[in-house]
Structure formats: C-alpha cells, structure tokens
C-alpha cells in the first residue's frame, strides 16, 4: 500500500493503454512514455504492462505503508527516499514508513513510479489506465490527490538485491535514431498519411525540413505545434475516421496538432503523417518550447524500430533477472 502525500493536479495511474474498446469510441490512454513505464516494470520483475504512476507535475511525494520494491524511470526527477538521492532509471527496496519525493526534472517531462506487483486498481474495459478527459479507469477515474491510498498487486519478485538495479536509459540505448546534428532538436520518425500528397510542395517541404516548436497548449490529449502554417490549395471534405496516437493533423489554421494518448478517438482534419509508435515516448518527454523535426520512414522501417525497442526491453528484463538471481525459467 502506498499513500499519496503531496501531488499537483494531473498525475495519474497508467498502464500501456486500452485496446479493444474502440467500438465504443474509447481511445487508448496509457503512459505517454511507454518505454519508461515498461522499463520500470521489468526492473521489478513485473509484466511490462503493469500499472504505474505517471508523474508530470511536481513535487510529488508518497509514503509507503508496507515494504515494497519500487522503480523510478523516465525524466530524472532527483528522487529521494527518506532523503537519500536515488540514481535515475533505478529500482530499490522501500520500507514501510519511508517517504519518496520527486522534484521537477532538469530535462524531460514525465517520470514513472512503478511498484512490485503493479498498482492494483480495477480493470476497466481491459486496462487500468486513467482517461482524464472523460473520467474513467485508473484510481476512481481521476487524477491522484493527496490522501489517496493505492494497493499493490501480488509481486512475483518481492525484493530487489541490496543496492538496487538500474537500466541504461533509452535516450542512450535508443539514441541513434534521434540524433541529427542540432542537439536540442528531437527527431521523430513519421509515416506519411492519407492527405500528405494533397499538400502543395511548399507545405510538404516546411513539414519535413523545419523545426516545429511544441506550444504551451500541449498535454496528454495532444501537442499543438508552432511553425510555418501548412495549407492545402483547396479544402478537402474528409469523412471522420478513427485516429491513433501520434497522428499529425492539420486544421485550417495550418498549425499541426499531434494527437496523443488521451486524444479523441476519431477526427476529420487532414492528416499529413503519423509519428511511429517506437518514437511516441520521445514526445512524452518533450516539454512546451521543445523543438521537433520529422523524418519520413516506411511502415517496414517503423517495424524495425519497434523491434529495436523490444530488444532493448528484453535486455533490461534479462539483466534485471540476472542481478536478482531469479531461477531461470
């Protein structure tokens, strides 16, 4: 059992998302940085998709009501367990009565607190993720508040070895794809979408070549971007369809919107491209003011990128198991 002692709004219970309820118009929700959530879980011997806490507003403080192994991954939030600084991307044992405090990260946007056994909230339509926009799932369908108590599921591996176990951060392990000259630009791989070719040459060039700035109107629903406006020669009448996290829509104002985890599940604005699943975590760590650049890839290249992420997670799992000395299964 863990108790939330202090939290600003908008921190919530998330897993890897809700699939199979789109016939209701229900979107995926889930962790904005899915790789960080999965890494924390694998360090603890949990299934990759166990529910954890997504922290995007700081400071955040919890008190442990029982002994439990925990991991903190994602943005480095200078976590302190009873005052002792923990390394980033690290798991350790917390004892009953200890407090954990997470401070605003120096870089990155979201940190994840995972616990052995996972956060045990009811499964709603196949997932424990909170949909903040509509208000279901997670802890009572809402963001966490001071005084909330969260139960832990049954852990397969209750204890971490003395000193804890760490993981190589994905921004290092999966960096190759993201580095491109300018160091302060996040490069995202994008598969062109249905209306891409309907945009005139100048707009397509601007989309692929310019750096786009993440505006302050950016949250779990989506990011509004700022840059050279993109315009069609003539408006298209588009029939509404289901949309996916990562889709880049262009409303008539010409400023693109990247729809993300808590986005509407359908829409009808022209879609110029879709950020590949393997790069969505990079968006989850982009703050307002961050600069983004898009590079075009095929669906095959996207599948390769997905396999690289899967390989990284498999290595985290193997290393953690070796460190704990689990019986090999």
């Amino acid at each position: 059992m863990i108790e939330i002692v202090q939290t600003p709004p908008l921190n919530s219970v998330q897993d890897l998302g809700r699939f199979g309820a789109r016939h209701y118009g229900v979107g995926t929700s889930g962790a904005m940085d899915d790789v960080a959530l999965a890494t924390g879980n694998l360090l603890l011997g949990n299934p990759a998709g166990a529910a954890g806490i997504e922290i995007q507003m700081f400071p955040f403080k919890v008190k442990f009501r029982s002994d439990v192994a925990v991991a903190i991954t994602g943005a480095d939030c200078r976590a302190r367990l009873d005052g002792t600084l923990l390394p980033p991307w690290w798991s350790t044992n917390a004892r009953a009565g200890q407090s954990l405090v997470l401070q605003s990260p120096v870089s990155g946007a979201r940190s994840y607190l995972t616990i052995a056994g996972g956060v045990d909230v009811p499964v709603v339509l196949g997932s424990r993720s909170t949909c903040l926009r509509i208000g279901y799932g997670g802890h009572r369908g809402r963001a966490l508040e001071a005084g909330d108590r969260l139960a832990c599921g049954t852990a397969s591996q209750a204890r971490q070895p003395h000193g804890g176990i760490g993981a190589e951060p994905p921004e290092v392990a999966l960096a190759a794809a993201a580095v491109d000259g300018a160091r302060d630009v996040t490069v995202l791989r994008v598969v062109p979408a249905a209306e891409h070719d309907a945009f005139p040459e100048a707009s397509r060039r601007a989309f692929w070549q310019e750096a786009w700035i993440v505006s302050a109107q950016s949250n779990r629903m989506g990011f509004r971007l700022m840059g050279t406006p993109l315009h069609l020669d003539q408006p298209l009448e588009i029939r509404s369809s289901g949309i996916v996290p990562g889709i880049v829509q262009v409303p008539p104002s010409g400023q693109p919107i990247i729809q993300l985890r808590d986005a509407n599940s359908a829409g009808g604005y022209p879609k110029i491209g879709v950020v590949i699943d393997a790069d969505l975590w990079r968006l989850g760590q982009a703050r307002p003011g961050a600069r983004l650049r898009f590079v075009s890839v095929t669906q095959q290249q996207a599948a390769t990128a997905q396999r690289e992420t899967a390989t990284y997670l498999a290595e985290v799992e193997t290393q953690a198991r070796l460190c704990r000395g689990d019986a090999l299964s």
Partner: peptide, 23 residues
C-alpha cells in the same frame, strides 16, 4: 488484428506490427 473501428465509410484497422505485415 488488435482493433477494427468503423468510421464514416471507412475502417481503422490497428494491428500488431510484430506479427502482421501491413502490405
């Protein structure tokens, strides 16, 4: 196939990219 969601005369099909070839 993970999900198939009807739209207005269209269908969004979400698949597992590790086990399903888009082509």
């Amino acid at each position: 196939i993970r999900e198939a969601a009807s739209g207005m005369s269209n269908l969004l099909v979400i698949f597992d990219a590790q086990s399903c070839d888009p082509e």
